[in-house]
């Protein structure tokens, strides 16, 4: 029995900050950041947006495309490293907003930037096991970099949601693969506001080792080569890393560009490769094969092979396209507004 994506959706906040605006505050050289990281601007959540609100909007888009009664969804897994509560699940709020309660299983996932694909993997597996007709996996984050840190140029906000099922599939899951090791490249201890990272170390033994090994392992397992894929999408901590990963694996720029959102979106952490996949599904044609590889520090990668079905054309127009949201009347803010929105300014208690 084939299992796959029956509905998908993304959500992009409307506010943006440009690299120049951050660089000027810290006396950094904007052109070298833009060139070095291949980033121009990033999305910024307003104070009334968080992982839960963006998850709800992305999931509503997914439900519209799936055309199902939300009460039939058997599980919701929200993957994020910025759940609004330390103790109180995000998934139950999302489930309530969709109308999927009370016969539902919820769990919040955490694994740095890999939490979204992790939720997708578990949701997909439960449907495959015949435990439930539909399951929903979401990747969402409103991540923060410490002021002046390199991460501040990239850490952004966004969400993507995937409903898995067995009927009216828009993209069949042909194969999966996972690759993990204990790698201390990026972490945040309890009660700490900002994460820490191992600087330049985060490239080679962390991101590239796991992403490349996962992609190669998945292609070996499924006996495929880059020539078998129309599209590929990788985790996007900045603009540069996914492009280099694609090049090393032998995927042309033309196969990755559609899902390469980071130059104007930034790094949406758990939302990153799932949002890239949604931008690809928006334009994919029946028969297209897609390679997807996520990455989460700590460290690991989940890999998926999707094959787009004839049904895709019936659902693409049922919810806003990801790139359309990215380009629709962005509101640019200055660093002061950004600092206020992101809680970086210390105030008197009310």
């Amino acid at each position: 029995m084939e299992v796959g994506i029956v509905g998908y959706g993304a959500y992009v906040p409307r506010h943006r900050i440009k690299v120049e605006e951050i660089a000027k505050v810290w006396g950094a050289d904007a052109p070298s950041y833009k060139k070095g990281l291949m980033l121009r601007e990033k999305s910024v959540p307003t104070p009334d947006q968080d992982t839960i609100t963006m998850s709800v909007e992305a999931a509503r888009h997914a439900v519209r495309r799936a055309g199902i009664d939300p009460a039939l969804i058997g599980a919701i897994y929200v993957g994020s490293e910025s759940h609004p509560y330390a103790v109180k699940p995000s998934g139950t709020v999302v489930a309530e907003a969709l109308g999927a309660t009370p016969e539902i299983h919820c769990a919040d996932m955490e694994f740095a930037c890999k939490a979204g694909s992790e939720g997708m993997f578990v949701a997909l597996s439960l449907v495959k096991a015949g435990q439930m007709p539909y399951a929903l996996g979401i990747g969402a984050d409103t991540s923060q970099g410490a002021p002046g840190d390199a991460l501040e140029y990239s850490a952004s906000a966004g969400a993507a949601a995937y409903i898995f099922g067995r009927e009216k599939i828009v993209a069949v899951c042909e194969d999966t693969y996972a690759y993990m090791t204990d790698t201390p490249d990026f972490w945040r201890r309890e009660y700490q506001f900002y994460p820490r990272h191992a600087g330049r170390y985060t490239g080679e033994p962390a991101y590239f080792k796991h992403v490349l090994s996962c992609a190669r392992g998945l292609m070996a397992k499924s006996k495929t080569t880059p020539a078998d894929f129309r599209w590929a999408v990788f985790h996007q901590p900045n603009g540069k890393f996914p492009m280099r990963a694609a090049q090393e694996l032998g995927f042309s720029k033309e196969k990755v560009e559609q899902g390469w959102l980071s130059p104007t979106l930034g790094n949406t952490y758990s939302g990153s490769s799932p949002m890239g996949l949604s931008a690809i599904l928006d334009v994919a044609k029946p028969g297209d094969r897609i390679l997807m590889v996520s990455y989460g520090s700590g460290a690991g990668s989940d890999g998926f092979i999707w094959r787009v079905t004839d049904h895709i054309t019936a659902v693409q127009g049922l919810a806003p396209h990801t790139r359309a949201q990215l380009e629709d009347r962005p509101i640019y803010i200055d660093y002061g507004t950004y600092a206020k929105y992101r809680g970086k300014i210390r105030k008197l208690a009310e």
Binding site: R14, P47, D48, Q49, D50, I52, T53, V56, E57, R60, P84, Y85, V93, A97, P320, A324, Q325, D328, R329, A349, E350
Partner: peptide, 26 residues
Amino acid sequence: LEFRRLQQDGESGIICYGYKFVPAIG
């Protein structure tokens, strides 16, 4: 209509969610 935070009870209290209006896309 879009799902948003409406208010929060300080830094330690509950977060209230609900709807706000935003410009329609396109």
